[in-house]
């Protein structure tokens, strides 16, 4: 069991900065995030986009902001549970919370800060009629174990980096790889596009452009997919696996069932300390809502800062907390 003072759910910029503000008042933090890397949307969706409204930074790339935050919180040695989704929460007799992830990792803390942003990033599923029937029976949205595809026929759909990279990688593993993409052009990196073209020329990969999968067939598992190509006849490809890689879509996920007051997909909080209706659970950043809410990173920084003060008082009801300035005290890590 991982034990900490504040368990932060979501390792985006707001969750990360909260570690800093908690550290200044000697509270330890542990973060859980479904993504395999810290940074949330900034790292996953737009690392190369400039942000212009971080105070003191006329312009900073989202990815660089995350790097800076990681450096800033280093003295406070936060723990991370990455690539796992916070699934369930239970209250202990002494008022603490146990949060368990989808992989069974357990965490215990007296305070929870939900900094989940827009939620967990889940794979985008194409609108195919019987798709769910084949999930885990030949349809996978995330490649976890490449060996699963050893000597198998596979069809990958998509035009972004993950579709290209996995198609390239799996040519060495699978019996056959067919990449199906809606257009001629690809969104992925030029280098990967060139590699795909080379593999196609060498006959190691089958590429079908201006096309999409319109049907999946099979008895107990995927046996074939139907490819509809612009201005051409539809064709049926026999395959063992169909892997649609269309990027990720955020969903609030299991947190929606934690008994918190939710309004329009966001958690309602009291702006005195960004606490939810459940004492000890706070919500900060894009995941919360209140009158006048602005979904801005800078507002999330403020919310996290206020929330940790309230958490301190919960843990130490008899102690008076005085605001300390870093200019006076510096940063004293753990």
């Amino acid at each position: 069991m991982i034990e900490t003072d504040i368990l932060i759910i979501g390792a985006g910029p707001v969750g990360l900065f909260t570690v800093f503000e908690a550290g200044l008042i000697k509270l330890k933090c542990h973060l859980i995030d479904y993504l395999p890397i810290p940074g949330g949307q900034c790292a996953e969706i737009y690392p190369k986009k400039p942000i212009y409204d971080i105070p003191g930074f006329p312009e900073i790339l989202a990815g660089d902001l995350v790097d800076n935050l990681m450096k800033q919180i280093e003295p406070f040695k936060p723990g991370f549970t990455l690539g796992e989704r916070a699934e369930t929460i239970e209250k202990t007799e002494d008022g603490k919370f146990i949060v368990t992830t989808d992989r069974g990792t357990k965490h215990i803390a007296p305070n929870i800060a939900i900094a989940g942003g827009l939620g967990c990033f889940e794979p985008r599923r194409p609108a195919l009629e019987n798709l769910s029937k084949f999930e885990d029976y030949g349809v996978e949205y995330i490649i976890k174990e490449p060996e699963l595809y050893r000597d198998k026929d596979i069809v990958i759909a998509g035009g972004g980096d993950s579709a290209l990279d996995w198609s390239i990688f799996l040519t060495d593993v699978a019996k056959s790889v067919t990449l199906v993409h809606r257009r001629e052009k690809f969104r992925g990196a030029l280098d990967s596009v060139e590699k795909v073209q080379k593999l196609v020329e060498e006959g190691k990969m089958n590429l079908i452009t201006n096309a999409e999968i319109t049907e999946i067939s099979g008895e107990a598992k995927v046996e074939s997919v139907t490819v509809s190509q612009k201005d051409r006849k539809v064709q049926v490809l026999n395959t063992d696996h169909f892997i649609p890689l269309f990027g990720l879509l955020p969903k609030l996920g299991p947190i929606a069932d934690w008994g918190l007051d939710i309004e329009k997909g966001a958690i309602k909080v009291d702006t005195v300390d960004y606490s939810t209706n459940e004492p000890g659970i706070y919500a900060i950043g894009d995941v919360n809502t209140y009158q006048g809410k602005l979904k801005l990173i800078l507002c999330g920084f403020h919310e996290g800062t206020i929330a940790v003060q309230s958490m301190y008082k919960r843990i130490n009801p008899d102690k008076n907390l005085v605001l300390k300035y870093t200019t006076v005290n510096g940063v004293n890590g753990f």
């Binding site: 985008r124 194409p126 609108a127 998509g158 035009g159 972004g160 993409h181 809606r182 257009r183 052009k185 969104r187 269309f246 990027g247």
Partner: peptide, 10 residues
């Protein structure tokens, strides 16, 4: 936008 609509559904 072109790329996004490529990957979008409906």
């Amino acid at each position: 936008e072109e790329f996004m609509l490529d990957e979008a559904f409906n």
